[in-house]
Simulated assay, not measured.
Amino acid sequence: MRTTKDRIRHALSFEIIGLLIFAPLASLVFGFKLELMGVIAIAGSIVATVWNYFYNILFDKAMLRLRGSVHKTVALRVGHTVLFEGGLLVLFLPLIAWYLQISLWEAFVMDIAMATFYLVYAFVFNWAYDKVFPIPQHAQGTQ
């Protein structure tokens, strides 16, 4: 399994890179000021960073228990990403509607678009992260 230091590096780099891409893109796509989308993105980033840390620990422990390894196939990476983003979708819907003063339906559409962006981004980022910072062979089956 990954060390605490590695998990923190992973979570912080994921969120910082995601913010730098998402906020300007969302401002253009949704037509809100960059400042508003920046606040949404930062608030979401804070919640997502905390969720990311605990979610990945739980996911890795489940993989070790069920499979004896934390190695992820493409199918497991897709499932990992979908479950993670599904949790965030539920958390962000009321926040977006309240802060942007839009209907729940509009917030839902925006949240789906955000989740779609982060689904693709998370898949690519995590795959690249595992290539750049591989888990040492001796740590793949330990807790």
Rank of each mutant, 00 (worst) to 15 (best):
G68V: 01
F59V: 11
N52M: 05
L104Y: 11
Y121C: 07
I135Y: 00
V47E: 03
M110V: 08
G86R: 14
L76K: 15
A113T: 15
K72G: 10
T49W: 01
Y121G: 12
I8A: 02
T49A: 11
L34R: 05
W98P: 06
F22H: 08
W127Q: 07
F117N: 09
M63V: 05
L100I: 10
L89S: 08
I21E: 00
N56S: 14
E85R: 09
A115R: 09
I42T: 08
V39S: 06
L64R: 01
N56M: 12
N52A: 05
R7G: 04
Y55T: 06
N56G: 13
S45P: 03
Q101W: 11
A107L: 05
V120G: 14
L64F: 06
E106V: 09
H71A: 12
L88A: 03
I40D: 02
E85V: 14
L12P: 04
I57D: 03
F125V: 03
M114K: 11
H80P: 00
F125K: 01
F108Y: 06
S27M: 00
I21T: 07
L20G: 06
V82N: 07
Q137E: 15
F22A: 14
H71M: 15
T49S: 10
A107D: 03
Q137L: 14
T73R: 13
F54Q: 10
A128G: 08
H80W: 02
V74D: 11
D60S: 09
A107E: 04
Y55D: 05
F125I: 05
G68Q: 02
G18L: 02
R65S: 10
F84C: 03
Q137W: 11
A115H: 08
H80N: 12
G38F: 02
G18H: 04
F14W: 06
Q101T: 13
T49I: 10
W127G: 05
A11P: 03
A23K: 01
I21A: 06
S103H: 11
V132L: 13
T142Q: 13
A128K: 07
G86S: 15
L104S: 03
V90F: 07
L66M: 13
L83M: 15
L119Y: 08
E85D: 13
L93Q: 13
S103E: 07
Q143C: 12
A139I: 08
F92T: 06
F108C: 10
A97N: 06
Y121E: 05
G86W: 15
A43C: 07
A97C: 04
S103V: 09
G31H: 00
K72A: 11
F30W: 08
L28C: 13
A128H: 03
I21W: 00
N52D: 10
V50K: 06
I57T: 02
N56A: 13
I40G: 01
L58I: 09
M114F: 12
R77D: 12
V109H: 09
H138Y: 07
W127S: 10
N56V: 10
A48K: 01
D60F: 06
A48P: 02
G31F: 02
V90M: 05
L104K: 01
M114D: 07
P134D: 01
N56H: 12
V47G: 07
F123E: 04
R67P: 02
V90G: 05
T142D: 10
